[in-house]
Design a protein around this nucleic acid. Structure first.
Lengths: 157, 157
DNA sequence: TCTTGACTTCAAGTGGGCTTGAACTTACAC
DNA sequence: GTGTAAGTTCAAGCCCACTTGAAGTCAAGA
């Protein structure tokens, strides 16, 4: 018989999530386990991948509830079908794409600060708030919470 | 005189961050304000952009401490130079790129589940943990916390 | 001037995501 | 068989990112 089930300690070591964290995930229904006669948890190997998925999604700002909701769209009693997966993939895509776009905007904004010429005007999108001499000028990029019309209004007076 | 300073309520409405949140950011040194004679805060317009930046970075999983550390690399007493900005941009790029890569991996993994053929094998990277009939097979992608050698070991026995 | 909504500080509370500790049991190498 | 590392539950605690509440002050229009 091949070694099929993993103890919580093994999953912990290999996933980087502490046993307490794995129990917490299980309490939320994100992962599941078999029990030995002595009530100890035993995990399937695929749990490692599932935990990796949870960690990654969590690290990029998704809540465990969102992750759980997504994983819960998979059927409980049967092997997920292609349509189950397609639905999960479809439902998450906009969220993930939005996350990516947000980070890229952040990154580009930082780079834009160097290239946009605003430094020569002694101001910037991310201007040091201690810089009292600042005045709003041209060349600004906008982040969420600010808009082109804001910039126009500010520039206008 | 143009309207130059914003009250905390105005910044709150326009940034989407509650006054209490703005005070919290200020307590952490992420933003700063002038005070009126009556001790009320007044913000420069650029604060809107700064707050937008903080929110975006926070939403994609960066801590306020990381954000603060980054913003703190900007000089306190003078206008940031091109080199100040270049340094901030350089120091954040790997972090942001890693974040983007993680989300893309997540997204591609979800899509891969549909296209990789694993469904026909009644198993998947994100296999339903309730599926007891599962056995680890070929075609698996790996996420953080799992590795090619893991997969080889599992497939091997 | 007065009223009222917006502001102030400070302390405590909340929710998410875990961790820690106490008290106890199980699994396994020797 | 036994020692010990690893497991169990449950309650409480911790850190982060805020929010809420109390008690009081400020700003500005009628």
């Amino acid at each position: 018989m091949i070694e099929r089930y993993l103890t919580i300690g093994e999953v912990a070591r290999r996933s980087g999530v502490a046993p307490s964290g794995l129990r917490y995930y299980e309490s939320l229904g994100l992962i599941s386990s078999q029990r030995t006669g002595g009530n100890q948890r035993r995990y399937e190997r695929t749990t490692l991948r599932r935990v990796g998925f949870i960690r990654t999604a969590s690290r990029v700002g998704l809540t465990l509830e969102e992750i759980g909701d997504a994983l819960a769209t998979l059927p409980e009693g049967r092997t997920p079908t292609a349509e189950d997966w397609a639905q999960l993939s479809r439902s998450w895509r906009p969220l993930l794409d939005a996350r990516i776009a947000a980070i890229e905007r952040l990154r580009d904004d930082l780079e834009g600060c160097i290239g946009c010429g605003c430094l020569s005007l002694e101001r910037c999108v991310l201007q040091n708030p201690a810089d009292r001499a600042a005045a709003l000028g041209p060349g600004a990029r906008y982040l969420e919470g600010d808009s082109p019309s804001d910039a126009a209004r500010a520039a206008g007076g």
